[in-house]
Deep mutational scan, measured.
Amino acid sequence: MALNTPQITPTKKITVRAIGEELPRGDYQRCPQCDMLFSLPEINSHQSAYCPRCQAKIRDGRDWSLTRLAAMAFTMLLLMPFAWGEPLLHIWLLGIRIDANVMQGIWQMTKQGDAITGSMVFFCVIGAPLILVTSIAYLWFGNRLGMNLRPVLLMLERLKEWVMLDIYLVGIGVASIKVQDYAHIQAGVGLFSFVALVILTTVTLSHLNVEELWERFYPQRPATRRDEKLRVCLGCHFTGYPDQRGRCPRCHIPLRLRRRHSLQKCWAALLASIVLLLPANLLPISIIYLNGGRQEDTILSGIMSLASSNIAVAGIVFIASILVPFTKVIVMFTLLLSIHFKCQQGLRTRILLLRMVTWIGRWSMLDLFVISLTMSLINRDQILAFTMGPAAFYFGAAVILTILAVEWLDSRLLWDAHESGNARFDD
């Protein structure tokens, strides 16, 4: 018995066209964080690309023209004298008006014999932002004059995390709450300039795509075929072959399989920071003279006294001054041990922890910024005066060393310790 099946006739004509040209192939790229070699397709503007294995951002879609970056830099340069030299806060102490600005706080630190601690604050609040705007201006002028731009481009990517104007702005709020127990506070004209400078700096850093600047100024022929001998440069993120001198053909720094002496430098910085954190938390970090009496505060006791007036601000200072430094030390110690013992479990967790400490590390400088600003506000000789204690130097040095330890660690070593050939990683 035959089955009668109805015929289905399409209502619209289906047209099949042959592909007349070869589909576009992607360029081969190595991930600078996990060293995976993959094919990167062509990316349009405002599109980002991520590593298929570790999800690290390979290409950032946010990109401004150099002219727009230069305009932002010149605007920031105009704001800087007002943000640093004009009063941020006014207080009335014992019937006398006192003005506080950024430069005055750094000068008070240096004047009291601790120039190293003052230079830490100076670099993060004044030096690094000033280098940022002058570097962008150098790129703008240098591109037109045919100057060598490689050193500036190499420095810009590392400079971003040292620009800490946003953290200093939080420190202004913390210092205001600490001082309000002794005097009446009012915002100064410099505060508005400083807030504007923070906003412009944040926007500029978020749109400063150094890798795209490398592509514009020093374009290189990408690798179009897969080759395990391809290496990625950690300076400019170019994937290719080393030249005859073993250097990256684009930025001219040595092109090595792994960062040289990464573990040794990381261990040295980490152990030194552990040693410095002990006096930083045991010795007094601030000293207040009130009517001839002397009151010393460690980091913890200062947080407890701050909690009596504002528990939320005390929580912020606790996280930045105690929780973050010790968390960074514990995480980095764990990561280094996992590399030495070739741990194969929990790779995803370790990668996330490394990215976390990379982002939060700079916030530990908050305590030094609060001390710097408070020193310029309260300084009335023996009637009422505020000065920093010996722990300030140890704390600042420990924070900087932990930042350097994270920067010096080559994250690809975590993958080397893991089993080879993993296309995915999980716990």
Score class of each variant (00 low, 15 high):
54 C>Y: 00
420 S>M: 10
397 A>W: 06
400 I>G: 06
81 P>K: 11
269 A>K: 01
303 I>S: 14
63 D>V: 15
298 T>I: 07
159 L>Y: 00
227 D>P: 12
261 H>Q: 10
305 S>L: 06
109 M>P: 01
290 L>T: 04
78 L>C: 11
48 S>M: 15
371 I>H: 00
363 W>M: 05
348 R>E: 11
387 T>S: 05
174 V>T: 06
396 G>E: 02
153 L>D: 00
247 R>T: 07
65 S>M: 07
237 H>D: 07
320 A>W: 00
145 L>F: 11
177 I>G: 11
290 L>N: 05
365 M>K: 09
21 E>Y: 10
422 N>G: 15
5 T>I: 10
300 L>H: 10
390 P>R: 06
115 A>D: 12
223 A>K: 07
342 K>M: 10
246 G>M: 09
267 W>R: 02
110 T>N: 15
98 I>R: 05
259 R>C: 08
68 R>W: 09
103 M>D: 03
260 R>T: 03
8 I>Y: 06
402 T>W: 10
78 L>E: 02
311 I>S: 08
5 T>F: 11
261 H>S: 03
184 H>G: 12
12 K>M: 13
164 M>F: 03
267 W>K: 03
205 L>P: 05
110 T>S: 14
214 W>N: 08
380 R>D: 00
5 T>E: 08
169 L>V: 11
410 D>H: 00
157 E>K: 14
107 W>C: 11
178 K>F: 00
148 N>Y: 02
335 L>W: 04
84 W>E: 08
256 R>K: 10
329 V>L: 10
66 L>F: 10
165 L>C: 15
96 I>F: 04
323 L>W: 04
20 G>C: 11
390 P>Y: 05
90 H>M: 04
291 N>E: 02
253 I>Q: 03
353 L>V: 14
59 R>M: 07
56 A>K: 13
385 A>K: 04
77 L>P: 14
414 L>R: 00
399 V>C: 13
398 A>D: 05
274 I>S: 11
408 W>E: 03
16 V>N: 10
414 L>T: 15
279 P>I: 09
205 L>V: 11
386 F>P: 00
167 I>R: 12
173 G>I: 08
28 Y>A: 13
352 L>F: 13
203 V>W: 09
285 I>P: 02
70 A>P: 12
37 L>K: 12
337 L>I: 14
30 R>W: 00
91 I>M: 04
68 R>N: 04
80 M>P: 05
125 V>D: 07
41 P>C: 14
200 L>I: 08
319 I>D: 13
264 Q>L: 02
187 A>E: 09
95 G>Q: 06
106 I>W: 01
20 G>W: 08
346 G>V: 14
397 A>Q: 02
150 R>L: 03
210 V>L: 15
352 L>W: 11
406 V>N: 08
368 L>V: 13
282 L>E: 04
331 V>I: 14
283 L>W: 11
310 N>S: 10
